[in-house]
């Protein structure tokens, strides 16, 4: 732990590792940066006085390299490509690499654009390394010593501020700042350093049957009654709340107070 603190806040700055995966365009399936991972790289690039390393564990190949070039084009000099078989469980390899490289902060997307995409990997790494885990990172506000103050994404565009002990692994939310444009020059010049590593086969993978996603329409109003007339009425009637409170012949002041109370109860007022 001690050593880590020195890594996290030493004079050489914070060491940030970004775990990147290969993305696929949602319409064409062409390889490229994975959107959330690219946002993670962007976040890392904006950490002041930091030292950034990018890791990818996977099957090396032309598509993989093409995708990784997308990250290099953001102005990254090199990416470490940890060679793994197509059916590998990459968590072991990544754990080992992280244990060795001892970053203060590990950033990665919330969910991969290929494969199972369970979003479990960062949790597994945090658990086995014993590091903090941050879910849904949107921005890093400050890093002081081995403490980072960050914003976490909540639904509906809301944010929560957290203070986290480093080292930490953070999953980056899709509402984090968008990644900078990937430029051709640095993408071509950047290095992809291949690191050979044993693969441990993900046995469970064989048990999954994976197909293209089906359309899943949102549920429409449920009218389950056995009575034909009830079903009929439920469909044909306009929506009415029914038992609402009606304040008539009250002063504007009283009305406002009633509304104010409701707003407070529902916790939508930020005061």
């Amino acid at each position: 732990m001690k050593r880590h603190e020195s890594m996290a806040s030493g004079s050489s700055g914070l060491s940030v590792a970004v775990l990147v995966s290969t993305g696929r365009h949602s319409l064409t399936g062409r390889p490229g940066r994975a959107d959330q991972d690219a946002r993670a790289v962007e976040l890392a690039l904006n950490v002041e006085n930091s030292h950034i390393r990018l890791f990818h564990a996977g099957e090396p190949g032309e598509e993989c390299r093409e995708a990784l070039r997308g990250y290099l084009g953001m102005g990254i000099d090199s990416i470490s490509l940890i060679e793994q078989s197509a059916d590998a469980d990459v968590s072991a390899a990544l754990e080992e690499i992280l244990r060795e490289s001892k970053p203060g902060l590990v950033l990665t997307g919330t969910q991969a654009e290929q494969g199972e995409g369970s979003g479990l990997l960062p949790y597994m790494l945090a658990e086995s390394l014993g590091w903090s885990l941050i879910a849904g990172l949107v921005s890093i506000e400050s890093i002081e010593g081995n403490q980072a103050t960050i914003l976490q994404a909540l639904p509906r565009g809301q944010r929560r501020r957290l203070k986290v002990r480093l080292p930490a692994i953070a999953t980056v939310d899709e509402s984090a700042a968008r990644a900078r444009q990937s430029a051709f020059g640095p993408a071509q010049r950047g290095r992809i350093d291949t690191i050979s590593h044993d693969s441990s086969t993900d046995e469970a993978l064989a048990g999954l049957s994976i197909k293209a996603a089906r359309v899943r329409p949102k549920r429409l109003k449920i009218v389950k009654s056995k009575s034909a007339r009830d079903r009929f009425k439920a469909a044909a009637a306009k929506s009415e709340g029914g038992a609402g409170q009606v304040l008539s012949e009250v002063s504007a002041q009283e009305g406002a107070e009633a509304i104010f109370k409701l707003l407070q109860d529902e916790n939508v007022l930020s005061i």
Binding site: G117, S209, K211, A213
Partner: peptide, 9 residues
Amino acid sequence: GARERSDIV
């Protein structure tokens, strides 16, 4: 799976 792109049984 895969960010809404696949279904896994």
